[in-house]
Amino acid sequence: MTTSTRGAVKTPAVLVLEDGRIFRGRAYGAVGATFGEAVFSTGMTGYQETLTDPSYHRQVVVMTAPHVGNTGVNDEDMESKKIWVSGYVVRDPARVPSNWRSRRTLDDELAAQGVVGISGIDTRALTRHLRERGAMRVGIFSGDTIQDDAALLARVQEAPEMTGADLSAEVATKEAYVVPAIGERKFTVAAVDLGIKGM
């Protein structure tokens, strides 16, 4: 994945599926190129939890809900300490978040963590395509990474497949940590964190 600073709303972006289907839109989050397995999420809420869920590592998440980012990003609803998705696809991102817990916009958070996204495409058509054809490799390209369609498709088809990938080694914690008890401590439990969700 290659990324640069946050893209202006009008920066062109292209989403290319490994079977040759192409969607054109605008950059959302970081500008650059990213690859992963295309999957979709039908949740109307909870996008922050989805983004920070380690089980979405190396996946490009397509949101079927038309409006995303309405409540911004806060510091309490994280499933882990970072965003794990490889890319993010939305139809109509919120221009201004409206929630008393919001600390920053979703666009800014994606850019700050180097997550390349695309907005302004028909996410329901893309979801139907994935539902009928199955999960597949995908690339999102924006800014200077956009080339002719054939070159972009070749890059997607050269990206590694998910089959056989050892992702638990990539999402596992590198060091031990302690989660303090809420209320009276009754037991001591040890767990191997290979991508535990925080909530």
Rank of each mutant, 00 (worst) to 15 (best):
M1A: 01
M1E: 09
T2H: 13
T5A: 15
A8F: 13
V9Y: 14
V9L: 13
V14N: 03
L17S: 05
F23I: 02
G25W: 11
A27L: 05
Y28A: 12
G29Y: 02
G32D: 09
G32W: 14
G36W: 02
V39L: 05
F40K: 08
G46W: 13
Y47Q: 10
Y47P: 05
E49L: 09
E49A: 14
T50C: 14
L51T: 04
T52Q: 07
D53E: 08
Q59V: 09
V60A: 07
V61G: 10
M63G: 03
H67I: 02
G69P: 07
N70I: 02
N70Q: 14
T71W: 15
V73H: 13
S80N: 12
K82H: 12
W84N: 00
S86N: 08
V89E: 12
R91C: 11
R91Q: 15
A94C: 10
R95V: 08
R95W: 11
N99T: 01
N99A: 07
R104V: 04
E109Q: 15
L110P: 00
L110C: 11
A112N: 09
G120M: 04
R128E: 05
H129K: 05
L130Q: 04
E132A: 04
G134M: 03
M136K: 03
R137C: 10
G139Q: 03
F141K: 01
S142C: 04
D144R: 00
I146S: 02
D148Q: 05
D149H: 07
A150H: 01
A151N: 05
L153P: 13
L153C: 01
A154F: 00
R155G: 01
V156G: 03
V156Q: 03
E158R: 02
T163H: 04
G164F: 00
D166A: 05
E170D: 09
E170Y: 05
V171Q: 06
A176Q: 12
A176F: 12
Y177G: 06
V178W: 14
V179N: 09
E184C: 07
T188S: 08
V192M: 03
G198A: 10
